[in-house]
Amino acid sequence: MKSQPSYRTQVVQDTIIIEFYEISKFLQDELGPELDRELGQPDLANCKHILVDCQHLKYANSLFLEILLNMAAQADQRQGRFALCCLSLFLSEVFEVTRLQGRWPTFDSREAALREIQAA
């Protein structure tokens, strides 16, 4: 089963921005391995930081949280920072319930997140 295209990556200086689309049907069982492979591609492998932009993400589930934990581990391995931006109210609640709130820095906008990450 192939997951729907549900994200796009972009590089700004040494930060990989992963922007998830609206995923009302969160069919992302293969998304973890797919992202893992993509982050290892030559154009992304040398970036230190990872920023996940959730602006268009209304719904997610525990598999999505696992993906975030994997990506955060990747940022650690690169000695970089991992951050999130533009979380919806529902996603914030999911983080709170699973005690992941405060685990990573979160920002209201992508610009604010990039400023903070790249200043560090």
Binding site: N61, S62, L65, E66, V94, T98, R99, L100
Partner: peptide
């Protein structure tokens, strides 16, 4: 156990916690 100190770092096991919460 969601109150276990190691729970936050576990890559899995959050499904039932979400079910109970919601």
């Amino acid at each position: 156990d969601p109150f276990d100190p190691g729970f936050v770092e576990r890559p899995c096991g959050r499904g039932v916690v979400l079910m109970r919460s919601f």
